[in-house]
């Protein structure tokens, strides 16, 4: 067990260290792309906590991403707040929204939960459009100059600098990865898996499953919001398209592709999906056709995702 734990720590720290070193070797374009991938992977990791570990399939995670994005973006745009402060506002919005949604939506289970989250997300999207006066709806807003520079721990940082963005994204990824890793290996994580496998029995054993699910939904929503807030501030744009159903399906895809219920799966899935679309789109405008075919092949031959298959065949210790 402890040697497995050591292996696991070594693997995850190794991935993060690898990503840190990679920035010195990556060609410029891939440097920019990996920044995006790391941020989106955070979104998928948040989603995976709920879906992969707890077995709750939300089809509305775009609303949490959007909560972070608009919380951060609107406070930077309209109130002129500094980048760290706006980022915190984005996270706070994620906490509040996921708590509210959790209290209501967790009264349902299974398919009803999918649909309820989907509908709340649709309401969130329409809310953004409804307040076009402040959000500019679908067109969205460009972050002002003032939100491109900030001071952190006495350091003057510029978000226009690709290296800064890369390392900030890596930092967020590292924090989230470590938190998720600790969470799923502890008692809490085991109770999540117990709920996934058999909620009724977990309840009988004396666990307050509603509270556990609420906690994990809030953590999941908040992680997703941190990704949205980071995305808004780093790439200087917020728009309602990020709240559409597409952005609820994306983390599901990333997670399933990489392997649901694994810590690294969402990251791997995000990276693969990004490059799959990026590369195939150069050869054909039907790149989504390729993506569709890949998904079908994947589900036929690797039903537990790539890392799930790896775990089943070779490395049982993979968290």
């Amino acid at each position: 067990m402890s040697s497995e734990q050591a292996k696991s720590i070594f693997l995850h720290a190794g991935v993060l260290a690898g990503l840190f070193l990679l920035q010195f070797f990556l060609p410029e374009y891939h440097h920019l792309s990996v920044t995006r991938i790391m941020l989106l992977a955070v979104f998928a990791m948040g989603f995976n906590l709920l879906f992969g570990y707890t077995g709750l399939l939300s089809l509305g995670h775009a609303m949490f991403f959007a909560a972070g994005m608009y919380g951060a973006g609107l406070s930077a745009y309209h109130l002129g707040w500094s980048v760290p402060l706006s980022f915190m506002v984005g996270i706070a919005c994620g906490v509040v929204l996921s708590l509210a949604i959790g209290l209501i939506a967790l009264r349902t289970t299974g398919v009803a939960f999918m649909i309820v989250t989907l509908m709340f997300s649709q309401v969130a999207y329409l809310t953004i459009v409804y307040f076009t006066t402040y959000t500019r709806g679908d067109e969205g807003l460009v972050m002002p100059e003032s939100a491109r520079q900030f001071v952190l721990f006495g350091q003057q940082l510029s978000l226009t600098h690709p290296g800064t963005r890369y390392n900030l994204a890596l930092m967020l990824l590292a924090i989230v990865m470590a938190s998720v890793w600790l969470l799923v290996r502890g008692d809490f994580g085991r109770s999540l898996i117990a709920i996934r496998e058999n909620e009724a029995r977990t309840k009988m054993l004396g666990y307050n499953t509603f509270l556990i699910k609420l906690k994990v939904l809030v953590v999941s929503g908040t992680i997703s919001a941190s990704s949205g807030a980071g995305y808004a501030l780093m790439f200087a744009y917020i728009g309602s398209s990020f709240a559409t159903i597409q952005y609820s399906i994306d983390p599901l895809l990333y997670t399933l592709l990489g392997g649901a219920g694994t810590v690294l799966g969402p990251f791997l899935g995000t990276a693969l999906m990004f490059y799959l679309i990026d590369i195939t789109s150069e050869y054909t405008s039907a790149y989504l056709l390729v993506a569709g075919i890949v998904l079908v092949i994947l589900v036929l031959f690797f039903p537990r995702g790539l890392l799930g298959a790896v775990r089943n065949r070779w490395f049982g210790w993979l968290p």
């Binding site: 060609p27 410029e28 374009y29 440097h31 920019l32 792309s33 995006r36 969205g140 790439f235 744009y237 728009g239 398209s241 990020f242 597409q246 990026d278 789109s281 405008s285 790149y287």
Partner: peptide, 19 residues
């Protein structure tokens, strides 16, 4: 192709500039 999507649009601009 930007897929009529601002996220992909921004990625495409990055791709033009750096790749």
């Amino acid at each position: 192709d930007d897929g009529t999507d601002p996220k992909r649009g921004a990625e495409v601009v990055e791709k033009f500039a750096t790749q």
